[in-house]
């Protein structure tokens, strides 16, 4: 009879690991809890670093390459830390038709960042999303989790400028 894999210790005494651990416990430390657990890590830490990936892999007894394969398959998971503010420009069809690309161009010309980039001062990360389901308000952006509808370059850049 094989012994169950002993659970690894938490990577540090950072309380957030307990939240992550709780997610895994809730799912009985089964391999299929991988995506839920990665969500939990990202919610707690903002991104997935190597320490987290190794901890999750060991806890759920999932091969490292499989964890990395899953983490890089889904667009939501970030393997790099994000800026203090996150601006997601929706590039769904309705937003595209109504000028999402001009919003991206506007942000690029003001901050010199492309989707996936973070400004050098770590203030702002720019991302794109495939439709946030706010098509009635196209073009839409999601700024730090809040949907802002009917944007144009001027209003958006003003809003971004006003952030701390």
């Amino acid at each position: 009879m094989q012994q169950p894999q002993p659970k690894p210790p938490l990577p540090s005494d950072d309380k957030r690991w307990k939240i992550v651990n709780a997610t895994m416990r809730r799912h009985g430390y089964t391999a299929h809890a991988l995506i839920e657990t990665l969500h939990s890590v990202q919610d707690a830490f903002g991104f997935l670093d190597e320490i987290a990936l190794r901890f999750v892999a060991a806890s759920l007894d999932v091969p490292l390459s499989k964890v990395y394969g899953v983490a890089t398959f889904y667009h939501i998971f970030m393997l790099k830390p994000q800026g203090r503010h996150t601006c997601v420009v929706c590039t769904g069809t309705a937003c595209y038709i109504k000028g999402a690309d001009t919003l991206l161009a506007g942000i690029h010309s003001r901050y010199d960042i492309n989707p996936g980039d973070t400004t050098a001062d770590n203030r702002l990360s720019l991302l794109t999303a495939r439709c946030v389901g706010a098509c009635g308000l196209a073009p839409a952006v999601v700024l730090n989790g809040d949907v802002l509808g009917k944007q144009d370059v001027a209003t958006l850049v003003n809003t971004l400028e006003a952030l701390d």
Binding site: E50, P63, L64, S65, K66, V67, Y68, G69, T72, F73
Partner: peptide, 29 residues
């Protein structure tokens, strides 16, 4: 039974990886 390899990324950016996309020679398993 080692599962050293997997695929990372998606679409045409997919790539075969060992462990955490690290050099094969440094793979633990």
């Amino acid at each position: 039974g080692a599962h050293t390899w997997d695929i990372m990324g998606r679409g045409t950016d997919c790539r075969v990886i060992s462990d955490l996309a690290q050099p094969w020679g440094t793979s633990d398993n």
